[in-house]
């Protein structure tokens, strides 16, 4: 359940930003999470209420943009959609690749009041 650590990391970021901006609470938080980032979205939703309880994120709307995986083949430079980390290049079948999208784990923005 590293999703708890992730959620608490998000809480820390929000608490810091609220303090900096001299505001009281977060109304909306938008996250960008890659499909290959290793986050189980059900787990994140499950622990979210307990993680944000009594913090500036309590009651905030949570929006998650899921970013699909994308890779560039290390052999033929073909750019392809990556569903699993172990997928091979559909053009040349090589497993050598650089992952260009899908590993994101970011707080994109906050709406605070």
């Amino acid at each position: 359940m590293h999703e708890l650590s992730i959620a608490l990391g998000i809480v820390n970021i929000a608490e810091k930003e609220i303090k900096k901006a001299h505001k009281n609470k977060v109304e909306l938080i938008e996250l960008e999470i890659g499909a290959l980032a290793g986050i189980e979205f059900n787990s994140l939703d499950f622990i979210w209420p307990s993680a944000v309880k009594n913090t500036v994120l309590e009651g905030a709307e949570k929006k998650i943009n899921i970013i699909e995986g994308e890779a560039i083949c290390g052999d033929c430079q073909h750019i392809f959609k990556l569903k699993n980390i172990f997928d091979s290049c559909p053009e040349c079948n090589s497993y050598l690749k650089g992952i260009t999208k899908g590993k994101e784990l970011r707080v994109k923005y906050l709406e605070v009041s």
Binding site: I6, G9, I10, N12, I13, E17, A21, K23, E27, L31, L105, R106, V107, K108, Y109, L110, E111, V112, S113
Partner: peptide, 14 residues
């Protein structure tokens, strides 16, 4: 009164 804070911050940054 809402203020938007653009962050683009990595959650694992710490």
């Amino acid at each position: 009164h809402k203020t938007v804070i653009d962050l683009e911050q990595d959650i694992l940054q710490h």
